[in-house]
Simulated assay, not measured.
Amino acid sequence: MPVLSAQLRAAAARLAAAGIDSPRVEAELLAAHVLGVARGRLLLIDDVAEPQAEALAELVGRRAERVPLQHLTGTAPFLDRELLVGPGVFIPRPETELLARWGIESLRGVADPVALDLCSGSGALAVALADARPDATVYAVERSDDALPWLRRNVAGTQVEVIPGDVRDVALPAPADLVLCNPPYVPLSVAVPPEVAHDPAEAVFSGEHGLDLIPVIIARAAEVLRDGGRLGIEHDDTHTAAMATLLTGWRDITTHPDLAGRPRFTTALKAARASSARFSETSSSSAHRSA
């Protein structure tokens, strides 16, 4: 009967040779998935059955080919949840938890808030808001036919209402107290890790500068937010200046760092004069030049 500790050493070595950043951690996560136990309980297991050893070896081989770990386990951790993920939906990243926490905090003191998660994907932001604020009305907007089934699975049992449609023109509920969005924002010229190739391209890239959709998000948020409502948008670390330009007319514009200290999301408060008009081509072009 195969010895688990030896299986883990071999798995970690194979993953390290494939360039995985945390090979031992991922080997243990895959083993825990195969054995159906928490990772911390692996220390209590000496031997594994042959079929389990074979299943682990198969998953390690696929991970060595840079298939995302989350596709192999079928879940992605996000705050206090394990979200269901797989082909067709963007895998939520730990950095986005910071935006979720900011959104939750921004609703402190707001009774029965209304919040929108635009470009929702897996529903990570929407579910985080719903879990933290059972009194909130939360809407998750997503256009992808491939992502929508994952979104609906993840919001099942919560008060989140799914709105299928393109954020550019779908009808949105108003007034809202909060709009959060993790849109596609990677410039087309940026080289991404092999795992990102498994994410839907439309959920990752957004034109030459990565800014094709963000002006639309800001304009739609201005349409639906009440005066004093708040907006939080994740973006590329090269977009700080562009975000300040795009948010002209908003108040309290603040860019927040991610876990590595890079600028990752920007927040703002809607002033009464913030325009709800669609962003003009001229303004968009100016923002592109400032990126």
Results as ranks from 00 to 15, higher is better:
2 P>V: 03
5 S>P: 08
9 R>K: 13
14 R>Y: 08
15 L>T: 05
17 A>W: 13
17 A>C: 10
19 G>N: 03
22 S>N: 14
22 S>E: 13
23 P>K: 09
26 E>P: 06
27 A>S: 10
29 L>K: 07
31 A>Y: 01
34 V>W: 04
37 V>K: 13
44 L>N: 09
45 I>V: 14
45 I>C: 06
49 A>E: 11
50 E>K: 11
51 P>L: 10
51 P>A: 10
52 Q>D: 12
52 Q>E: 15
52 Q>W: 09
55 A>Q: 14
57 A>D: 15
57 A>M: 04
57 A>N: 13
59 L>Q: 06
61 G>P: 03
63 R>S: 04
65 E>K: 11
67 V>D: 07
68 P>V: 07
70 Q>S: 00
71 H>G: 04
71 H>W: 02
77 P>F: 14
78 F>S: 01
79 L>N: 07
84 L>R: 14
86 G>D: 04
87 P>Q: 11
89 V>E: 06
89 V>G: 01
91 I>F: 09
93 R>H: 02
93 R>N: 00
94 P>N: 11
94 P>I: 12
95 E>R: 09
98 L>Y: 08
101 R>Y: 08
108 R>D: 14
110 V>C: 09
111 A>R: 14
115 A>N: 05
118 L>T: 03
121 G>Q: 02
124 A>G: 00
124 A>D: 00
125 L>P: 03
128 A>K: 09
131 D>Q: 11
134 P>R: 08
137 T>N: 05
140 A>C: 02
143 R>M: 15
145 D>R: 13
147 A>Q: 00
147 A>R: 01
149 P>Q: 01
156 A>F: 09
158 T>G: 01
159 Q>Y: 05
160 V>S: 05
160 V>A: 05
161 E>Q: 14
163 I>P: 03
164 P>S: 08
168 R>T: 11
170 V>S: 02
171 A>V: 10
175 P>W: 03
177 D>W: 09
179 V>A: 06
180 L>Q: 01
180 L>E: 01
181 C>W: 05
186 V>C: 13
186 V>Y: 12
187 P>A: 13
191 A>S: 15
192 V>I: 12
194 P>W: 15
197 A>Q: 15
206 S>V: 08
207 G>K: 14
209 H>G: 15
210 G>K: 06
211 L>A: 10
213 L>T: 05
214 I>C: 05
216 V>I: 15
219 A>T: 09
221 A>W: 08
223 E>D: 03
229 G>V: 06
231 L>E: 01
233 I>L: 10
233 I>Q: 07
235 H>P: 00
242 A>W: 07
247 L>R: 07
253 I>K: 10
257 P>Q: 01
257 P>C: 01
260 A>C: 08
262 R>K: 11
265 F>M: 07
267 T>H: 04
267 T>F: 04
273 R>K: 11
274 A>F: 10
274 A>V: 06
275 S>Y: 10
277 A>M: 11
278 R>I: 13
282 T>K: 13
283 S>T: 14
283 S>K: 14
283 S>F: 12
286 S>C: 09
288 H>V: 11
290 S>V: 09
